[in-house]
């Protein structure tokens, strides 16, 4: 098998890695923002329920959450596979293989990351002092203006470092999709190792893809942090 062929297969896996990464971010960030308002809500039962939920999600391994999303619907439905039907649907309508597992992975990733993001957002919003809001109020600003013109920017500055960490972790977490048979980068490499004759080196080589991706993100976030450092508290 040629180097080029192996690269092509790994790249296809890396495409799935990127897909999981991007869709998770695109949905988990707004969902996390909504959740963060929930855990800062004045309605105490809502706040408590959401806090317990977030505690559970952050307290158990993401791998277990993937298994739960993937296997529980079938178990609850007398063993009738739910995701199998989704698989068929995706295959016959769009020609996508393993669509059920992919959807299950996306759901678990989105829920998991939304919870982490919610806690970061809450921290960011609460760290902007009450005094900033009140200064806006006595200047006759509307609630919307206060959020958009006064609070939001300060929150973005505060949460950029922890969000960078979390987003870089997400790049590497996507490998967990492997657990229910998604052929992402690592699984694609593994397939060579378990093939005949076995080719081992792609497993180690696959790390290069992650390194390049994480390197790119690191440069991006450093740039952003620099842009935001024109003022201090």
């Amino acid at each position: 098998m040629s180097f080029l062929q192996i690269n092509e297969t790994l790249l296809r896996g890396f495409g799935l890695t990127c897909l999981i990464f991007i869709i998770t971010l695109a949905v988990a960030i707004p969902l996390g923002l909504i959740l963060s308002f929930g855990i800062m809500s004045k309605i105490s039962p809502l706040r408590k329920i959401l806090n317990v939920f977030i505690w559970i999600i952050r307290g158990i391994p993401l791998m277990l959450q993937i298994f739960m999303v993937y296997y529980l619907p079938g178990i609850l439905n007398n063993g009738v596979s739910f995701w199998g039907d989704v698989d068929k649907y995706f295959y016959f309508n769009y020609g996508i293989e393993n669509g059920g597992a992919l959807l299950a992975v996306l759901i678990s990733f989105i829920i998991n990351y939304a919870c982490y993001f919610a806690v970061i957002f809450r921290g960011g919003i609460q760290s902007v002092s009450r005094g900033q809001t009140e200064a806006g109020m006595v200047l006759g600003l509307t609630k919307k203006q206060i959020f958009r013109k006064v609070i939001l920017f300060q929150v973005i500055k505060k949460i950029t470092p922890p969000m960078s960490n979390e987003i870089i972790t997400l790049v590497k977490d996507t490998a967990l999709a492997n657990a229910i048979g998604i052929v992402e980068t690592i699984r694609a490499a593994q397939n060579f190792a378990s093939g005949f004759p076995p080719v081992i080196w792609p497993i180690f080589y696959s790390g290069v893809f992650y390194l390049l991706f994480v390197g790119f993100l690191t440069v991006l976030f450093n740039f952003l942090e620099k842009k935001l450092s024109f003022y201090k508290e």
Partner: peptide, 17 residues
């Protein structure tokens, strides 16, 4: 109603950005 009054806070509360 608020705009009838101005308020200067002990802790300034300028907008840092």
């Amino acid at each position: 109603k608020r705009l009838n009054f101005g308020l200067v806070f002990q802790s300034f509360n300028l907008f840092p950005q």
